[in-house]
């Protein structure tokens, strides 16, 4: 019998607070939501290892801001530094989220441009959320006036999830994708594949497709079979 081919449909889960598994990072979610609602901090600096969901959270903030009729802007510096003109006009935006802000360190033109933007944006009491893989104190910003400003607001470290939380996160994510996995399957995935969250999410999506093709539930024996087949390819 020919195997059933899944309809080519890329599931695109938008990055929201609802589909973020907070685990031990619930405090961060609360402060970010309060910030957007205008009842919390005006400036938040979110830092921690990559792959923990900082970009997800920043984009969730922009989405929340939009639902509250606030203008928002998000930019990720991880790929390359654009012309600093990209900051002009943004002091008018109620929310600006800058991802991987540490990348501007050591670039005098960008440090100066960001410093100017920072002052004007703050003068209007608008909200600024930044993320970085390291703490603000560790970023090698050359412009002293800018360096002290990064530490000014609320600084929050995103915690790496413990294994029990990772299993819960896998179950949560599978549920978001529309299927179920047991804690045993979650545990198996943690011990037999890359444990960083982005790799686990990728794997979940692949497993979802494989279970659709084989019309089988995701069980440990089935997982072993899939991983064996994948490894032998």
């Amino acid at each position: 019998m020919a195997e059933q081919l899944p309809l080519h449909f890329e599931f695109r889960a938008n990055q929201t607070f609802n589909n973020f598994f907070p685990g031990t990072n619930q405090e961060i979610v609360t402060h970010l939501q309060n910030c957007i609602a205008g009842v919390g901090e005006q400036q938040i600096f979110l830092w921690g290892k990559s792959g923990q969901g900082k970009s997800h959270l920043l984009q969730a903030c922009c989405r929340d801001a939009q639902s509250q009729n606030q203008r928002s802007f998000y930019f990720d510096f991880s790929a390359a530094l654009p012309d600093p003109i990209i900051l002009s006009g943004l002091d008018n935006y109620e929310l600006v989220c800058l991802d991987n802000i540490e990348k501007i360190a050591g670039n005098p033109e960008w440090e100066q441009a960001f410093f100017n933007f920072f002052n004007q944006h703050r003068d209007y009491s608008h909200k600024l959320i930044m993320s970085s893989s390291v703490a603000a104190i560790e970023i090698a910003i050359q412009l002293a006036d800018l360096k002290t400003r990064l530490n000014w607001g609320l600084s929050l470290k995103i915690q790496v999830l413990a294994d029990t939380d990772r299993i819960a996160a896998l179950i949560f994510k599978a549920d978001q994708l529309g299927f179920e996995i047991s804690p045993q399957v979650g545990n198996f995935l943690l011990t037999h594949s890359d444990r960083d969250l982005p790799s686990l999410w990728d794997l979940l999506e692949k497993l979802d497709r494989a279970s659709l093709v084989a019309k089988r539930k995701l069980t440990v024996p089935f997982l072993k079979q899939i991983l064996r087949e994948t490894n032998s390819c």
């Binding site: 920043l58 922009c62 989405r63 802007f73 990720d76």
Partner: peptide
């Protein structure tokens, strides 16, 4: 990411 940077604003 693209939507938040280029479209929503």
């Amino acid at each position: 990411s693209d939507f938040s940077t280029w479209i929503r604003p």
